Simulated scan of single mutants.
Amino acid sequence: MKSLEKAADRLSQGLALIGSIGLLAMLVHVTLDVALRNFADTPIPATNEIVSRYYMVLIVFLPLAWVERQRTMITVEVMEMLLTPTGRRISDGAVALLATVIYAAIGWVTWAVALKNLSIGTFVDVLGHKVAVWPSYFLPTLGFFLAAAMTALRLVIIIAGPSAPAQEGAET
């Protein structure tokens, strides 16, 4: 179980890193576009399309697994203090199960959309040039399925129950 958790940690951190690199690339791309447009009157073609169809999608969806692994998704714990430890564990398990099902369902739907866009070769026309955007439809699918995997792992950990070394490592 420990090696699975370490692999999940590495995977989620890698995805967060890719999202961070995407954010940095978007920053550089937009900055260059604005500078070139204002100083040389030659903007970078398709900047709006690339930013909205690739960078933003990458930044939003790929790090979902990292957010779930870190347990930093928004939570509401109004009744949490009233529950016993067993009740909290049942509640956490139910939330993890529900999140897994929802992420997987959304992943399945976005997979169908991605395949449709792949088959028709979705593109946008920018000044007479075709810019392929069909690959960007696979990013949400990947993000949702990996987030589902992280919440499923959380459910397995909850069901397995806490072990003494795992609890000490999680709190530090």
Rank of each mutant, 00 (worst) to 15 (best):
1 M>Y: 10
2 K>F: 11
2 K>W: 11
2 K>S: 12
3 S>Q: 15
5 E>A: 14
5 E>G: 01
9 D>G: 15
12 S>P: 04
13 Q>A: 14
15 L>H: 05
16 A>K: 03
16 A>F: 11
17 L>S: 11
17 L>H: 03
19 G>M: 08
19 G>A: 15
21 I>M: 11
22 G>V: 04
26 M>P: 00
26 M>V: 03
28 V>F: 14
33 D>K: 05
37 R>H: 10
40 A>K: 09
41 D>C: 01
47 T>M: 11
47 T>E: 07
47 T>R: 08
47 T>C: 04
48 N>R: 07
50 I>Y: 07
54 Y>L: 13
56 M>F: 08
57 V>N: 02
59 I>T: 02
60 V>G: 05
62 L>E: 08
64 L>E: 04
66 W>H: 10
66 W>S: 04
68 E>W: 02
73 M>Y: 14
74 I>C: 01
78 V>K: 12
82 L>Q: 14
84 T>Q: 04
85 P>Q: 04
85 P>N: 05
86 T>P: 00
87 G>H: 09
90 I>R: 08
93 G>Q: 06
96 A>D: 05
97 L>D: 01
99 A>S: 13
102 I>V: 15
102 I>A: 15
102 I>K: 06
103 Y>E: 02
106 I>Q: 06
106 I>L: 15
108 W>P: 03
114 A>S: 11
120 I>Q: 10
124 V>E: 15
124 V>M: 10
126 V>E: 14
128 G>M: 05
130 K>V: 00
131 V>H: 04
137 Y>Q: 08
139 L>S: 03
139 L>P: 00
140 P>I: 11
144 F>D: 06
147 A>E: 02
152 A>Y: 09
157 I>G: 05
162 P>L: 11
166 A>R: 14
